[in-house]
C-alpha cells in the first residue's frame, strides 16, 4: 500500500447548523463522541430518527460514549464521487463499530497512513477541518 498523499479529510464540510446533528458537532468541538439514546429503553439510534424502532418511544438524549471502537469494514478510495473533489485520490475510509454502543456504525477517515484492516482498534479523535468544524477521525492500532 502506497503512502496516502492527501489530507485525511476531504474538502466537503458538513453544515453544523443543521438542528438534527447540532449536538453531535458541538460535542465534537469538545473532543467528545455522542450518540442519541432512547430515554425509555436505552437503545442507541444512529442515524437519528424520530421513533425508537425497539420500544416505539419518541424521546432521545445524546449520550457520551467511550471513543474506542474497531474496524468493521473499510475501503480505500481511488476516485472520489463527492461533488467538487478531484477524482483521483487515495483515502482510507473505515466503518467503525463499538462494542459498548450496539447498532452504531461511524464512518471516518484514518489519521496517518496506517492501512486499515478488519478488527483493528479504532480510537475516535477529532480534527478541525474548518472554523468551528471538527470531524471524527480514527487512530488505528493493533490492540
Amino acid at each position: 500500500m502506497s503512502a496516502i498523499t492527501v489530507p485525511n479529510s476531504g474538502p466537503w464540510v458538513p453544515d453544523i447548523t443543521w438542528p438534527v446533528l447540532e449536538e453531535f458537532w458541538a460535542a465534537a468541538r469538545e473532543g467528545r463522541l455522542v450518540f442519541p439514546r432512547c430515554t425509555a429503553c436505552g437503545r442507541y439510534q444512529w442515524y437519528p430518527q424520530a421513533m425508537c424502532p425497539d420500544c416505539r418511544a419518541m424521546a432521545f438524549e445524546w449520550d457520551d460514549v467511550r471513543p474506542e471502537g474497531y474496524v468493521f469494514s473499510h475501503t480505500t478510495l481511488r476516485r472520489s464521487f463527492v461533488p467538487g473533489e478531484d477524482g483521483e485520490q487515495a483515502r482510507h475510509i473505515v466503518l467503525v463499530k463499538f462494542v459498548h454502543v450496539p447498532g452504531v456504525t461511524l464512518v471516518t477517515n484514518v489519521r496517518g497512513d496506517m492501512a486499515p484492516r478488519v478488527d483493528l482498534r479504532a480510537r475516535i479523535i477529532f480534527d478541525q477541518v474548518a472554523p468551528g468544524v471538527w470531524l471524527p477521525v480514527s487512530e488505528l492500532s493493533e490492540d
Binding site: 476531504g10 443543521w18 469494514s73 475501503t75 483515502r91 475510509i93 464512518v107 477541518v129
Partner: peptide, 24 residues
C-alpha cells in the same frame, strides 16, 4: 442531509464506495 453530514465529508459517497465496504 444525513449523508451530507456523516458520510460525504469522509468520501463515503457513491455506490461503488458502499459496495466496496460490503465486499471487504
Amino acid at each position: 442531509p444525513y449523508k451530507a453530514s456523516l458520510e460525504m465529508p469522509f468520501g463515503f459517497y457513491g455506490q461503488p464506495v458502499y459496495f466496496a465496504a460490503v465486499a471487504r
